[in-house]
Amino acid sequence: MPSLSPTSLAVSDALTHYRQLRHLTQDELACVLATSGHPLAAETIARMENRERLITVDDLVALAYALDTTPAILLTHIPIDMPTPEGPFATGLPADVDHTEVRAWAEGRISLDRESRMRWFEEKVSRLRMRSTHVEEQLRGAWDELRGLGDLAEQESDARQVREIHDRIRDGEYAVNQTDIALGLAERQLERLRECAR
């Protein structure tokens, strides 16, 4: 089995993931590929998924089309069982480029020069701050609604309305937590980029 780079690992795992997501067997995918003019045997697809055969650029384009996704999605897929990489998320890129940057770059939304990356992270931090404010307001609203019910919230804790408010509070707390984590990571990356620019 060849030693695969991070990008090859991503594409191999993405092939399996998106094939299963589309409820296709390897034989069915082989049929779709043959119909679109890029025949690959089911055994070849199995070898690709098992990381026993590298996926060519031609394969990548045909697979993306057959799986109703894009080459950028397949290239920037992060396997669920992938350990935190010691190096870059994608082959040949600087190690400090995170997976969201790789996806934006692969989709043509950003360049990876220092100034473009700083602008991208400044915008990301700004968006995350707005999101943080929004989810915190929603969470406060849910708590206010629950408090507005007074003793009824405790007496009728199994009532549909009370359960729905508790669900919104739980979801809101989770959203606040996730947004805070993403914001902290984005702010840290922006600071690193600014330090390197000095």
Score class of each variant (00 low, 15 high):
S126D: 12
S132N: 10
A106Y: 08
L149F: 02
R103T: 15
V135G: 04
R103E: 15
P94C: 08
R109F: 08
L146Q: 02
L93K: 07
L139T: 12
M118S: 07
R109K: 15
D144M: 08
R117F: 04
E154S: 10
A106T: 05
S111W: 04
K124E: 15
R109S: 09
V135H: 11
L128V: 02
E107G: 10
A104D: 14
M130R: 15
R117I: 03
L139R: 14
E115N: 12
S157L: 04
R103F: 14
A142F: 03
D144L: 08
P88Q: 01
E154V: 08
R114K: 09
V125F: 05
A95S: 09
T100I: 10
R103D: 13
E107V: 09
A142Q: 04
L93M: 11
R119Y: 04
V97A: 03
F121D: 05
L152Q: 06
G92S: 04
Q155E: 15
G148N: 01
D144I: 02
R117N: 02
T133C: 11
E145Y: 01
E101R: 02
E115P: 06
A153D: 00
D98G: 00
P94R: 15
D144Q: 12
A90R: 12
R127S: 13
G141K: 01
R147C: 01
G141I: 02
E115G: 08
D151K: 01
L146T: 01
Q138D: 15
A90G: 03
L112C: 01
W120S: 10
I110R: 09
V125A: 11
A90Y: 01
R127W: 02
E123M: 12
E136F: 10
D113N: 10
S111M: 08
D113I: 02
L112H: 08
S116N: 14
E156V: 04
H134W: 14
E156A: 11
A106H: 07
A106D: 01
D113K: 02
E145N: 06
I110W: 06
W143F: 14
D144K: 05
E122A: 13
W105V: 04
L152S: 03
R109I: 07
V97T: 06
E156K: 02
Q138R: 12
D96F: 08
D113C: 03
E136V: 10
E123P: 00
T100W: 12
A90N: 03
